[in-house]
Design a protein around this nucleic acid. Structure first.
Length: 540
DNA sequence: AAAAAAG
């Protein structure tokens, strides 16, 4: 366990990509990456599942970039479809960074923004496209986006993309790309029914699961708590919690857009540097809020589930569920915004009377037993320290009692004025979004990650389905949001994956099973076939 | 029922 995970270079990744990753402080692979690279680079279809914040983006991004023909003819060669605009921007930036030394042109295609820039970029030529369903279909129908040469397709947050709301659009997109293509699905959560559905359009896919963890994929690194906020003033409760020592960036999730805005406004009024992000805001405001949060200008982000998946921001130390999430998948993704890449995090779910049933369902499904918190990381900040809970009791008392008792008590006396400030943030900040990125852009600092998780176990299963391979072309890049690419991670061997990674255990992920995987000879045939330009995707 | 996603 102390050994370090294999490097990207050891998988035969192109030097230009290795160099770009290195510049971002990334050298070694995470478990999902080590497990995915061999198969993905060979052109196999696959379903990749790993816990949140464990590198899934590069897990499919590197193989995808690897098979882009450079220079291409300007026709998109690979496509990544994501559920939200902000995630689209983020993934595009990550891939843009990883492919910069190859001269790969990357473009983010999403709604809420003018058509022209995107159309113009396509006109000039694009190799890699990352997009949200609506705008992708829109531009494709207008003939501005040509999907006829897509040789690699990825559905990020796959279970969400194949859910009722998105399925129709995804099916249409699938009908527009060549049958002969490589298709990969990634997500931290992958319900059985979704996998079954996926097999209908995947070609003998291998199911790769780093750190097996059926129910969800929750990091042991994140301390989870449930707080029975029955009939309590949740905003007041949170206002206090936000004053916790050592708190870094904090994300607060609500179930509705209205509530998200309201909570953000209330917190701003109380003097917190908070911003809101939800679908009722203009795209500019959404991106501005996220940038402000990323840069630290605002350290409290109140969001709807638009920000529950994929958003990768360093330094998010706390996630507070102002309202109980809809289901267990949403719960897993929401709290997955913290405790990323080897860091620790704290997740607190406030449960009101009318949410008890839903919470029980989530709790049971994920086998959570938060009434008796698993463990407390002395090194991680604790919201509860400001809720009147004795330090040493955090992990033992029945949450419902201790918290309520202590809280209500103080609540009445202290409640009066609104205090402000909390640790770092300064006074009142702009409400929704303020400017943004002035402060630190942490992107740079290449931190290096040490371990990855090659070693973790992986459950590989094969499945099958029908499907293709593909071919493609190339294009420019895009901009927006956060600069940073991958993130750093520190920590040495064993814990890289986290103490919990234990799950990994023995399975030799990488090769062993994956290789030929007992099942079928998946990889062989599928590779792309004859396209005029075909290049060896897997060549190297 | 809610959110997101084209406008």
């Amino acid at each position: 366990m102390t050994e370090e995970s294999p490097t990207f270079a050891s998988f035969g990744v192109k030097p230009e990509i290795v160099k770009a990753l290195g510049e971002a402080g990334i050298e070694r692979t995470f478990a999902i990456q080590a497990l995915t690279l061999p198969l993905a680079m060979a052109g196999d279809d696959l379903i990749g599942q790993a816990r949140t914040g464990m590198g899934k983006t590069l897990g499919f991004g590197v193989p995808l970039l690897h098979r882009v023909e450079v220079p291409g003819d300007g026709t998109p060669q690979v496509l990544v479809v994501v559920p939200t605009r902000e995630l689209c921007i983020q993934v595009a930036n990550d891939l843009k960074g990883a492919g910069k030394h190859l001269g790969i042109r990357t473009l983010a295609i999403y709604g809420g923004r003018p058509y022209e820039p995107q159309i113009e970029a396509l006109r000039k030529g694009v190799d890699v496209v990352i997009g949200t369903p609506g705008r992708l279909l829109d531009l494709a129908e207008q003939q501005h986006l040509v999907l006829g040469k897509i040789r690699g397709l990825v559905l990020d947050e796959a279970d969400e993309m194949l859910d009722l709301g998105f399925l129709p659009d995804i099916e249409r997109i699938l009908r527009m790309v060549p049958d002969e293509r490589q298709t990969m699905l990634f997500s931290a959560t992958m319900p059985g029914p979704i996998i079954t559905l996926a097999r209908t359009f995947l070609n003998q896919p291998t199911h790769i699961r780093a750190e097996e963890n059926d129910a969800g994929a929750i990091h042991e690194r994140t301390s989870q708590f449930v707080y029975r906020a029955h009939s309590m003033d949740k905003t007041e409760l949170i206002a206090r919690a936000l004053q916790a020592e050592g708190r870094g960036l904090t994300m607060i999730f609500s179930r509705t857009k209205r509530t998200a805005q309201k909570v953000a406004d209330d917190l701003v009024e109380r003097g917190f540097a908070a911003a809101a992000v939800h679908g009722d805001l203009g795209q500019g405001a959404r991106e501005q809020a996220l940038r402000a949060f990323r840069s630290g200008k605002v350290d409290v982000l109140v969001a709807t589930d638009v920000a529950a998946r994929g958003i990768d921001i360093d330094d998010v130390t706390h996630v507070i569920n102002y309202q109980c999430p809809e289901d267990e998948k949403t719960y897993v993704h929401r709290i997955g915004r913290t405790g990323r890449a080897g860091r620790t995090g704290v997740a607190v779910t406030l449960v009101d009377w009318d949410e008890e049933a839903r919470w029980k369902l989530i709790s049971d499904t994920l086998s959570l037993d938060l009434a008796e918190p698993v463990e407390t990381y002395s090194s991680s900040p604790h919201l509860f320290s400001d809720l009147g809970i004795p330090e040493g009791t955090k992990g033992r008392l029945p949450l419902s009692k201790r918290t309520r008792a202590g809280l209500s008590a103080e609540k009445e006396e202290d409640l009066g004025g609104k205090r402000r400030g909390r640790r770092g943030s300064s006074g009142p900040a702009s409400p929704s979004a303020s400017e943004d990125e002035a402060p630190r852009k942490r992107n740079r600092a290449p931190r290096k990650r040490t371990r990855g998780g090659a070693r973790s176990a992986a459950a590989i299963e094969a499945a099958d389905a029908a499907a293709p391979a593909s071919s493609g072309s190339s294009g420019p890049d895009q901009q927006e949001d956060r600069p940073r690419t991958p993130r750093r991670r520190t920590r040495s061997g064993a814990d890289a994956t986290g103490p919990a990674t234990s799950t990994g255990n023995a399975t030799p992920a990488t090769t062993s099973d994956s290789g030929e995987t007992g099942d079928r000879p998946a990889r062989r045939r599928r590779r792309r076939r004859p396209s005029a330009s075909d290049t060896p995707a897997s060549a190297d």
